Deep mutational scan, measured.
Amino acid sequence: MTSCHIAEEHIQKVAIFGGTHGNELTGVFLVKHWLENGAEIQRTGLEVKPFITNPRAVKKCTRYIDCDLNRIFDLENLGKKMSEDLPYEVRRAQEINHLFGPKDSEDSYDIIFDLHNTTSNMGCTLILEDSRNNFLIQMFHYIKTSLAPLPCYVYLIEHPSLKYATTRSIAKYPVGIEVGPQPQGVLRADILDQMRKMIKHALDFIHHFNEGKEFPPCAIEVYKIIEKVDYPRDENGEIAAIIHPNLQDQDWKPLHPGDPMFLTLDGKTIPLGGDCTVYPVFVNEAAYYEKKEAFAKTTKLTLNAKSIRCCLH
């Protein structure tokens, strides 16, 4: 018999989150649709729960009410004593943790798909938090293969000092899905179709896995975050240069030392320094102006996964 890495157990509980950011409308629209008619997301033997994560922000069509829901799922915020004085999103995070967690427990949901849009030209993107997770690498390989020839990129946010504390991190297997470009507060049919297909293929993978299909060893190309880059700023902290036209919409493309990065209003080009080629992502993302992030630098690498098969009882 072929030796293989056996994944822990079959997958039982899956959640699909929309509206973690209330103005990213593809996930909101799909989740609302699936709450009314969820036939397309159901798979035999699998509990799939669509869920609106930040209903107040969705109602106002804004990213958040008090603070970013997708950055506060750490033990400090989840452990705060519940009171009306807490920011709305912290209270909501505790409610979500109660419903789908608790985080880092045996009772937490197996998989959470968190649906997002970006204003950046990132196409279909899967966000991975753990480079050693054979199950998710296999799932992402399946999704990428199923979507081809449509490109699907994998963004690895594993980093020693950049801690995200994402909404989906309460699950055993957290999956971020990011599709763009799409303006905030807008629905685009092409973007919706791409996100819908990503979810379909992900659920198909889980179904095949649960039925005992063995997935042979595989490898995927990923883009691992190195650092986030702020806009150049003046002495008052105001933005002093904008994304250069040569960099705009060039997510995932190589940016070499000396290539144009920013452009000042008086026409001066600010190039990339250093001696390493990087791959920019979230270029000129609207939501990241407040976070002082013009783009993120990534490096390209390959992740390998062992063969996996479900432990059938």
Results as ranks from 00 to 15, higher is better:
272 L>M: 11
131 S>A: 13
101 G>W: 04
255 L>D: 05
61 C>I: 11
51 F>W: 08
83 S>L: 13
276 C>A: 15
79 G>W: 13
100 F>K: 03
126 L>F: 07
217 P>K: 06
29 F>H: 15
287 A>P: 10
241 A>P: 00
250 Q>L: 04
43 R>E: 02
175 V>L: 05
15 A>L: 03
159 H>F: 07
180 G>A: 00
175 V>G: 00
215 F>A: 05
53 T>P: 08
160 P>N: 12
210 N>G: 04
42 Q>H: 12
17 F>K: 00
164 Y>N: 15
205 F>C: 05
236 N>R: 12
57 A>I: 02
253 K>W: 01
69 L>M: 12
128 L>P: 03
26 T>Q: 04
166 T>S: 14
129 E>W: 07
132 R>M: 10
180 G>I: 05
11 I>M: 09
155 Y>P: 03
99 L>D: 09
131 S>N: 04
253 K>A: 08
247 L>V: 08
193 D>W: 13
73 F>R: 10
310 C>D: 05
4 C>S: 15
291 K>D: 10
138 Q>H: 08
81 K>H: 13
19 G>Y: 02
161 S>R: 12
103 K>G: 11
51 F>S: 06
269 T>A: 09
110 D>C: 00
8 E>L: 14
51 F>G: 04
184 Q>H: 15
282 F>M: 11
192 L>E: 05
41 I>S: 02
14 V>I: 09
114 D>M: 00
142 Y>E: 03
289 Y>P: 15
312 L>R: 14
283 V>G: 03
75 L>P: 14
73 F>A: 11
171 A>L: 04
299 T>L: 14
7 A>S: 14
82 M>P: 14
194 Q>P: 06
220 I>D: 05
164 Y>W: 12
128 L>I: 01
292 K>M: 09
85 D>I: 13
231 Y>I: 01
203 L>G: 06
288 Y>L: 15
290 E>S: 11
75 L>S: 13
66 D>V: 01
5 H>T: 14
308 I>M: 10
175 V>S: 05
141 H>M: 02
173 Y>V: 09
88 Y>Q: 07
267 G>K: 06
73 F>D: 11
62 T>G: 11
27 G>C: 05
153 Y>M: 11
284 N>H: 05
154 V>M: 02
162 L>V: 14
118 T>I: 04
244 H>S: 04
17 F>R: 08
205 F>A: 06
72 I>D: 08
136 L>W: 04
151 P>N: 08
279 Y>F: 09
212 G>K: 00
272 L>S: 09
124 C>K: 02
129 E>Q: 11
142 Y>L: 03
259 D>C: 03
23 N>A: 04
70 N>I: 03
194 Q>K: 15
109 Y>M: 06
108 S>R: 15
300 K>P: 07
37 N>P: 06
268 K>W: 00
208 H>T: 12
199 I>Y: 04
269 T>H: 07
3 S>N: 13
107 D>C: 12
81 K>I: 13
309 R>G: 07
145 T>V: 12
94 Q>R: 12
66 D>W: 08
310 C>P: 07
310 C>G: 13
20 T>V: 04
221 E>H: 01
176 G>F: 08
103 K>S: 11
207 H>G: 11
175 V>W: 03
217 P>C: 06
247 L>F: 02
46 L>Y: 08
92 R>H: 07
178 E>H: 15
266 D>E: 11
152 C>Q: 05
171 A>Y: 03
187 L>H: 03
118 T>K: 06
209 F>T: 03
101 G>Q: 06
94 Q>T: 10
286 A>H: 08
50 P>D: 05
246 N>Y: 09
181 P>W: 05
111 I>E: 04
271 P>Q: 09
59 K>W: 08
144 K>W: 01
238 E>I: 05
202 A>Q: 00
176 G>H: 15
214 E>A: 09
46 L>V: 12
69 L>H: 06
283 V>N: 02
195 M>H: 01
84 E>C: 13
179 V>F: 04
62 T>R: 13
282 F>W: 11
275 D>Y: 07
270 I>C: 00
303 L>I: 12
97 N>S: 13
106 E>I: 12
282 F>D: 06
214 E>S: 08
149 P>A: 02
98 H>D: 14
248 Q>W: 01
77 N>R: 11
257 P>A: 04
250 Q>H: 11
245 P>Y: 00
138 Q>D: 00
125 T>A: 12
163 K>D: 13
100 F>H: 05
141 H>C: 01
151 P>W: 05
54 N>F: 01
220 I>P: 04
150 L>Q: 14
161 S>F: 10
218 C>F: 05
98 H>S: 14
149 P>F: 00
270 I>G: 03
193 D>F: 14
222 V>P: 04
55 P>H: 10
48 V>D: 03
226 I>D: 08
84 E>I: 14
110 D>R: 03
222 V>C: 13
25 L>M: 15
202 A>C: 00
180 G>M: 05
214 E>P: 08
264 T>Q: 08
72 I>T: 13
109 Y>H: 06
149 P>T: 01
148 A>N: 10
130 D>L: 02
101 G>C: 07
11 I>E: 03
48 V>F: 05
145 T>L: 10
29 F>I: 08
297 K>S: 09
183 P>K: 04
217 P>N: 06
5 H>Q: 14
139 M>T: 05
168 R>A: 11
196 R>C: 03
63 R>K: 14
181 P>L: 01
197 K>R: 12
309 R>V: 09
209 F>K: 04
153 Y>I: 00
257 P>T: 02
36 E>V: 07
113 F>T: 05
44 T>M: 09
309 R>K: 15
151 P>Y: 02
121 N>Q: 02
29 F>C: 15
136 L>P: 04
50 P>I: 00
200 K>Y: 09
238 E>C: 09
226 I>T: 11
215 F>S: 03
131 S>Q: 09
279 Y>G: 05
142 Y>R: 05
48 V>Y: 04
140 F>I: 06
172 K>E: 02
241 A>W: 05
155 Y>C: 15
128 L>Y: 04
99 L>W: 12
218 C>A: 07
10 H>M: 15
293 E>G: 10
48 V>H: 03
117 N>E: 08
141 H>I: 06
312 L>E: 15
244 H>M: 06
113 F>H: 03
160 P>R: 11
283 V>P: 04
33 H>Y: 07
86 L>N: 11
73 F>G: 12
22 G>E: 10
